[in-house]
Design a binder for these strands. Structure first.
Lengths: 131, 131
DNA sequence: GTTAAATACGATAAATTTTATCGTATTTAA
DNA sequence: TTAAATACGATAAAATTTATCGTATTTAAC
């Protein structure tokens, strides 16, 4: 109920780690995984997804690694979550209306809850969360 | 990711249904389940739990049923969710600190997210959501 | 060139959580 | 006494999340 996923958690761990480094300095998936005792392959996937979304930058090759690329003040928590997990809704019926409930009477209530969660997450920036 | 459960959904359906009735009038689990095409036994459990938490009232016996008991304006969405699903946290580490991550660097960020979700849900009443 | 260390990513297995079912007990008005 | 309703624990099924595996790609150092 209202949980965030490990993928998001690992992404936050990595961001906070990279934030504590000098500007151009790289961090590897291995280094972060070891330091926080987190599965490297899963962390790598969070990193790859953040890289594809231009939040961080991936440098390949033998001395490669990752570093923060975007201005974290410009990314809301809602955008961050959606870049990692797709559209955000407390129930699936918020998007695809393949609802099985005939004459459903809670679509409006659920949308009201959704809208407020989204509004709240839009007002938090990735910077203020991880700083 | 940030989903509510069917238990909560069924509870909202039932509440909204009962709200549309006269004051003393009873609704049975069977009637609600049939009308919205929802599994009766599961709906019954949501009803029982709301009854135990004094949100609604259960009348046993052959002409029994349920009706709203509490003043829904006095119950926040946070309280409602917690009555049905227990303490609310986007990660379990928010409560039991059996966290496996050594030197975890995101406890503070996660608490910041939690606090804002809880604050937002505290500001919505069950009445305004289901009316 | 070759090699080593890093990212990239799809497929699939394992684990966990959520959802649903089953069976039985209890209550009470007709 | 019976029928219709709530009450609830145990367990099975389904769905989702989490983790692993295997392989490909990139590139700096030697």
């Amino acid at each position: 109920m209202l949980k965030i996923t490990r993928k998001v958690e690992y992404a936050l761990i990595a961001l906070k780690h990279m934030q504590s480094k000098e500007g151009g300095c790289l961090s590897t998936a291995k280094e972060i995984a070891y330091q926080y005792n987190v599965p490297q392959q899963l962390l790598a996937k969070s990193l790859q997804q953040m890289s594809k979304n231009h939040i961080i930058e991936a440098i390949k090759g033998i001395n490669g690694g990752y570093r923060i690329k975007a201005n974290l003040s410009g990314i809301s928590l809602k955008d961050f979550f959606e870049k990692l997990e797709g559209p955000l809704g407390v129930m699936d019926c918020y998007f695809d209306s393949e609802c099985q409930i005939s004459g459903c009477n809670v679509k409006a209530p659920i949308e009201r809850i959704n809208d407020n969660i989204r509004k709240m997450l839009s007002s938090m920036t990735l910077k203020e969360v991880t700083q």
